[in-house]
């Protein structure tokens, strides 16, 4: 049997991983909730963000946490442009087309990174990568603790933005009733682009938080994106609180199934949950709209 200390450590570990999963899933669910599309390029954009952090550090020794702000802005603009210039015009609003276009984008981004950086695994070298802080007799990894703090801050900011800003209200209006929102004078195409930009910005933040402790290669996004899909489906497609809770839950599940079944089989636990939820309750455990 495992001692309570090990189980508790696994739980905390899961929560810290889950916080980053939650952030990735929030981006995905936001795009789904408003545009009603599943963005298959989400994982590839995350990989691109991680390579951007890596690139800034390799070229000019920019600290990953310093890169966070400019990259968030940069990826927002990038996401905005991709939706406005590629996905919107090329799909003509058809769901099947959007599915294929985001798949095409994923293939392009992933393989362009492969062509440039090759399949080598890279990491950024920062002095605090293995720093720990002691809280109540328990040791916490400093970068991962910071990640949790940033994710909480981002979630709060996002909530304030969606609840109180004019654009946030417009986003929620488009998510609820697209045609009605359009009749009220909301520029739906612009709201779509803003939402896609926000999704990409979440990934830039996630990338900056991941890089101090994580490795990057052109395929790394795939591992995260299926986890993110699971979280989004679990939390209810389009539900931001669902994605946050789902992220923490999946982080813990992964941590425990890794403990009991070993690293490689631990991943299966997530996929089985994913398939099960899709089959049994596609509206998600937290009961958001279908």
């Amino acid at each position: 049997m495992y001692s309570p200390e090990i189980l508790f450590a696994a739980l905390l570990n899961g929560v810290m991983t889950g916080a980053i999963y939650a952030l990735i899933a929030v981006g995905l669910t936001l795009v789904y909730g408003v545009l009603h599309i599943i963005n298959f390029a989400h994982g590839a954009i995350l990989t691109a963000a991680m390579f951007a952090v890596y690139g800034l550090h390799a070229a000019w020794r920019v600290d990953p946490y310093l890169a966070l702000l400019p990259l968030t802005v940069g990826f927002f603009v990038l996401g905005y442009a991709v939706q406005q210039l590629i996905i919107g015009p090329a799909s003509r609003g058809d769901d099947g087309n959007i599915l294929l276009i985001t798949l095409g984008l994923a293939i392009i981004i992933e393989n362009a990174l492969l062509a440039v950086f090759r399949s080598d695994t890279r990491s950024v070298d920062v002095p605090y990568a293995f720093s720990v802080v002691e809280i109540g007799g328990l040791l916490f990894s400093l970068p991962r603790l910071l990640a949790v703090a940033v994710v909480i801050a981002v979630a709060l900011l996002l909530w304030l933005f969606l609840a109180y800003s004019r654009t946030g209200v417009a986003i929620r209006a488009v998510a609820k009733e697209k045609i009605g929102a359009e009749l009220c004078g909301i520029d739906v195409a612009r709201i779509y682009a803003v939402t896609f930009g926000l999704g990409a910005a979440c990934l830039a933040i996630a990338g900056s938080l991941l890089m101090p402790t994580y490795l990057v290669n052109p395929r790394v996004g795939n591992a995260f994106v299926l986890v993110a899909f699971t979280i989004v489906v679990l939390g209810g497609m389009g539900s931001v609180p669902g994605a946050l809770l789902g992220g923490l839950f999946i982080g813990v599940v992964e941590s425990f199934s890794g403990l009991f079944m070993g690293e490689s089989l631990g991943q299966i636990g997530i996929f089985l949950i994913f398939i099960l939820v899709l089959l049994v309750r596609p509206t998600g455990l937290f009961g958001a709209k279908a």
């Binding site: 599915l99 299926l226 899909f229 489906v233 089989l265 991943q267 996929f271 398939i275 089959l279 596609p282």
Partner: peptide
């Protein structure tokens, strides 16, 4: 039988097939 009985279509169906392929890949790897 599983996916269509659960009335999955569109992106949901795409996702569930992707997940099954990944499960098989991980199993075949161990």
């Amino acid at each position: 039988a599983l996916a269509f009985r659960a009335r999955l279509r569109g992106s949901y169906f795409a996702l569930v097939t992707l997940a099954f392929a990944e499960v098989l890949r991980i199993l075949a790897n161990v």
